[in-house]
């Protein structure tokens, strides 16, 4: 169920690996993830506050988290992880739908929220997607989550779907 996509493509996203300094002065490494990042991500999601779950993800409980993280090994999926020293503190994922358009979601561990890591993770994930020749990216967000909606808009996503509880947003990457 892909939404409509904006006419105007967006460009200028950075690719991983890169290191940023967040608003708290922490050095954060953004790297493309593969199966070797699994244990770090399990740790991160075990520490994730359930109040920040969105539409049922991340799941709670180690078994459900591991099952969900099988997406790391899935074809047609891209992942960038934010590391502070050796700890995973953020994760952006893009997973293809049946129409080969990519759904995006992002998670940042609570002590690292509000420090600009989320924005840079999404931008870096989009840079990786662009480098892989992906044109269409979409996401859904609970419409009361104003901080997330503002973040996505700043990056260039446009609101496309208007179902009542969730809002769909989409972005076309410059090819």
């Amino acid at each position: 169920m892909s939404p409509e996509f904006p006419e105007e493509p967006v460009d200028g996203f950075p690719t991983p690996p890169r290191t940023i300094t967040d608003r708290e002065g922490r050095e954060i490494d953004l790297t493309e993830a593969d199966a070797t990042d699994l244990e770090s991500l399990v740790e991160m999601y075990l520490a994730f506050d359930p109040k920040d779950r969105a539409q049922g993800i991340p799941p709670t409980g180690e078994d459900a988290i591991r099952e969900w993280l099988e997406l790391l090994a899935a074809e047609d999926s891209l992942h960038v992880v934010a590391y502070h020293d050796d700890d995973a503190v953020g994760h952006v994922m893009l997973v293809a739908d049946r129409e080969e358009r990519y759904e995006l979601a992002i998670f940042v561990l609570q002590p690292y929220q509000g420090a600009h890591i989320g924005t840079e993770l999404v931008r870096t994930g989009l840079g990786l997607a662009q480098a892989r020749g992906i044109e269409f990216v979409w996401l859904s967000v609970e419409r009361w989550n104003e901080a997330a909606v503002a973040l996505y808009e700043k990056i260039g996503f446009e609101t496309t779907g208007s179902a009542s509880f969730e809002m769909e947003m989409a972005l076309r990457l410059e090819q």
Binding site: M1, E103, A105, A163
Partner: peptide
Amino acid sequence: QRSPLGKIQLGGVLEFVLL
């Protein structure tokens, strides 16, 4: 229903009926 990356999707029909 779940989206490709696992988000629960209620869909327009269900949302309308619930509300």
